[in-house]
Design a protein around this nucleic acid. Structure first.
Lengths: 198, 198
DNA sequence: TTCAAATACAGAGGTGTACTGTATTTTAAT
DNA sequence: ATTAAAATACAGTACACCTCTGTATTTGAA
């Protein structure tokens, strides 16, 4: 492999530990305080590093936050998602939405749409695109199986589900269980003719 | 009338003009920059007064913003809303959601849920409560008229609509027309069995 | 006389850059 | 092979500048 033949550049290499600490601190602060309330100073402080060290890696706050967002989902979920139908898909969603940290994260991203649209875009680019396709596929399988009306508009259903998630994020306390989230989603989906096979 | 018999308090009275200027400035900044990015300093500057003048009226930013939000809808819409059915209701929504300022305002309120939950609460208290009842009534009328399935869950439909609005706010540019918004809402609602009478 | 409003103040925190000293690593000369 | 030089990273400090906060004091309108 020629990939191993990368001549190491001269000088002291950057500490990977510092890389990770900075990104983790940035992500934490994004979730805790939001994008515009997060400062380079705070990130550096939390990462146990000086501001200059952060500035060496990132030109500014936005670039830092974008990379922090991207760093989340490159760790796990390298393979493609594939749900056999709506029910297991909702299970996954419910599990995700029952973790307060995830809920806050999503709210922060949507809440920063006007000031930092790049963040939501980075989130979608880094792990939303695959999902959309997988969602569509799951809905299609369920429709074939008769769990949905044969003439159901899958795109519309997808948007209804997306809206339901947003509504839930804004209206429900972060103490909900996965079971409650799923029950909520199923209730709404039932209005569209969803009839899960038992 | 004894109401005219209010003995004027001694000293210089507060300028009502300043009152309005401060509230208007606060509302503008809330919409433009968001709650946490808005400072008393900026409000004072935009209202053409000094900080001390603002502090005399409001103990802090939150109280100021709450009152600014409440000041919007006490001007117009004093009477109860009453929609004869879903279609005119969607017309009203679409009109509202086609005004960029309104869209921004809603995004700001939802985006500030984690940091300033009082703001969304104030919004709901000051003109969301009435609406919810009116929505339910409009849906009920349409159901009776056969535009919805007889066993439609009105609460669930209401939440679907609420979610759709949020989704639209986050996904669509603020240049949409009222017609486009309505088309979007109707498309989603059709999935729930909505069949408007022509 | 009494309160509104302007002015002044001290403190906190953030920004981006620059400079020090030290640690770590490669490259080149011996 | 050993050693010196060069290159880079990091901590720490400082700078000049800005914005915001909350209060205290003064000026002036009713």
């Amino acid at each position: 492999m020629s990939t191993t033949r990368v001549p190491r550049p001269p000088g002291r290499p950057r500490s990977q530990q510092v890389d990770e600490a900075v990104l983790a601190a940035a992500l934490d602060l994004l979730i805790e305080r939001g994008a515009s309330e997060t400062s380079i100073e705070q990130v550096a402080q939390r990462a146990g590093v000086t501001r200059a060290t952060v500035y060496r890696r990132f030109p500014g706050k936005t670039a830092l936050l974008i990379q922090a967002i991207e760093s989340v989902h490159q760790d796990h979920a390298p393979g493609a998602i594939d749900w056999p139908g709506i029910d297991p898909m909702l299970d996954d969603w419910a599990l995700y939405l029952s973790v307060p940290r995830n809920r806050r994260m999503l709210r922060r991203l949507y809440g920063a749409v006007d000031d930092h649209p790049e963040l939501l875009r980075a989130y979608r680019d880094s792990h939303g695109a695959r999902r959309a396709a997988a969602e569509h596929a799951a809905l299609a399988r369920s429709r074939e199986r008769g769990e949905l009306s044969p003439d159901a508009d899958l795109d519309a259903l997808q948007q209804i589900l997306g809206g339901a998630v947003l509504h839930h994020l804004g209206a429900c306390p972060d103490t909900v269980t996965a079971g409650e989230v799923k029950a909520y989603l199923v209730t709404l989906l039932r209005q569209t003719g969803y009839r899960p096979q038992e």
